[in-house]
Design a binder for these strands. Structure first.
Length: 426
RNA sequence: CGGAGAGUAGUGUAAUGGUAGCACGAGUCCUUUGGGAGGAUUUAGUUCGGGUUCGAAUCCCGGCUCUCCGACCA
């Protein structure tokens, strides 16, 4: 991609109606712009990041047997009525000019159960898991924190169906493991945190909390082990002894006797909820008739689970977690391009030709390159490179001779390599 | 939804009752090219509706929008 042809431009100053760091940097870089409170356009650069994140999520969901599909966003009132979730004042609900009453999907337990009911008939059809990556709509009373809490946001939601609770428990742990992989790949350290179920379930649930001052949840956690609870369910406060019975064990039960051997002291921090997992039981399968015949010939409702990752929230979280005074620092797997190639002094035709050759060679090899071919000063190119935060910067100029200067955005080190060496690395 | 604050060229800001100014951006021209360079020139604005006043960006009332705190919430 030639930067001179990019749809967006960067800005030196942040819009004054954005206070959150994620919104400021994303707006300045031309990744995303607000259209109204809590509603953002993902511009080409931001959309690329979103797709990178989605791809990581997709790979890990596929790895645990998830099948991707796409549910409708428009869900008729009758479906919400079945699960008694019409009129909850969580979603956008309205009557269309044609007279039909619909709710925009703020979650898809109804849609997934409706679909599953049509295909799950026997214990041989279980377990199954489907997921989608789709915009969710929520009537937030107050959108805030830039892209962290919007009224329309991109989410990955996975729904699983099981013959019994034991199988759900097994899959629940598989999803947790898969989520951990996602967050490791995206360089988002998380705490698996116990929490309440909100409008989804009465059971205890788990959230993946990325500790950050920008977060809106309050998390109690133990720095010495994995124990972590959302304040909405926490029975201890900061400064108290860690209630975990064993260090390193996932925080799976609040009711465990506190025969503490961890010895840590509970700390408090703000957290961004980037993922969550729910055991739904049979509430939705009963409402929608997701039934199967077991080995003995009797009919049973499937046991369900649902699991979410906020894809657009993750994008904002990445910015909150990884930035410096100059701009964003994208982790490699989320970077909109693999390489940001800068050519300096391109009015020298020899330099211009070398820059073009590097761009063509890398592109031909399948490397995604943003090529800054603009006729602007070196300072402006460097400034934009730092702001855009592409994980690897390459410079071609009179100074680099036949070589290419490489610098990772998250490092100060630069090294000179040949085009061949660069091709090897990428 | 309760409370607070803010809306001035594309962007960021000044002007507090008396000629709407500056910077950046954008256009044209010249110079410049390893950390947002310089000069010349052009462009473009008071959120909307009422009111007070000789006169309103400025004061008052109402609407709309945005931000922040709270409630709620992935």
């Amino acid at each position: 991609m030639l930067q001179s042809e990019l749809f967006t431009k960067t800005r030196k100053e942040a819009p004054k109606d954005e206070e959150a760091i994620n919104a400021q940097l994303l707006a300045r870089g031309g990744f995303a712009r607000k259209m109204s409170a809590g509603v953002y356009t993902y511009l080409p650069l931001g959309f690329r990041v979103l797709q990178k994140i989605a791809q990581v999520v997709r790979e890990e969901m596929n790895a645990i047997g998830g099948e991707e599909l796409l549910f409708p966003a428009l869900i008729a009132r009758e479906h919400w009525e079945k699960s008694k979730r019409w009129g909850l004042r969580v979603g956008y609900e309205f009557k269309s000019p044609a007279g039909d009453e619909v709710g925009l999907g703020w979650t898809h337990e109804e849609a997934s159960a409706f679909a599953a009911a049509q295909f799950i008939e026997s214990y041989k059809d279980l377990p199954r898991a489907v997921y989608q990556i789709q915009n969710k709509f929520r009537a937030e009373a107050r959108a805030k924190s830039g892209l962290l809490r919007g009224r329309e946001f991109l989410m990955k939601d996975l729904y699983s169906f099981h013959a019994d609770k034991a199988d759900l428990d097994l899959y629940y742990q598989k999803v947790i493991a898969a989520y951990k992989k996602v967050f490791v790949r995206l360089n988002v350290p998380v705490r698996l945190t116990e929490a309440g179920g909100g409008a989804f379930t009465d059971e205890y649930t788990h959230e993946f909390q990325a500790l950050s001052p920008a977060g809106e949840d309050t998390v109690y956690y133990c720095p010495k082990c994995d124990w972590s609870q959302n304040e909405e369910v926490a029975k201890v406060k900061d400064g108290e002894r860690c209630p975990a019975s064993t260090a390193g064990e996932p925080a799976s039960s609040a009711n465990e006797p506190a025969s503490s051997v961890c010895g840590g002291t509970v700390a408090i921090a703000r957290g961004i909820e980037v993922g969550n997992v729910f055991k739904l039981g049979t509430r939705y399968s009963e409402a929608f008739g997701v039934q199967f015949t077991d080995q003995t010939g009797s009919k049973k409702p499937a046991v369900m689970g649902s699991y979410g990752i906020g894809v657009s929230r993750l994008l904002a979280t990445l910015v909150e977690l990884h930035h410096d005074e100059r701009g964003i620092i994208w982790p490699k797997e989320a970077s909109p391009f693999a390489v940001h190639l800068l050519v300096l002094g391109a009015e020298d035709t020899a330099v211009e030709a070398r820059g073009r050759k590097v761009y063509d060679s890398l592109t031909k090899r399948g490397v995604e390159v943003l090529y800054d071919d603009r006729a602007v000063s070196a300072g402006e190119k460097f400034g934009d490179a730092d702001l855009l935060g592409i994980s690897l910067r390459a410079v071609v100029s009179a100074k680099t001779g036949d070589k290419i200067e490489l610098k990772r955005r998250d490092s100060k080190e630069v090294k000179l390599v040949t085009l061949e060496e660069a091709m090897e690395m990428l």
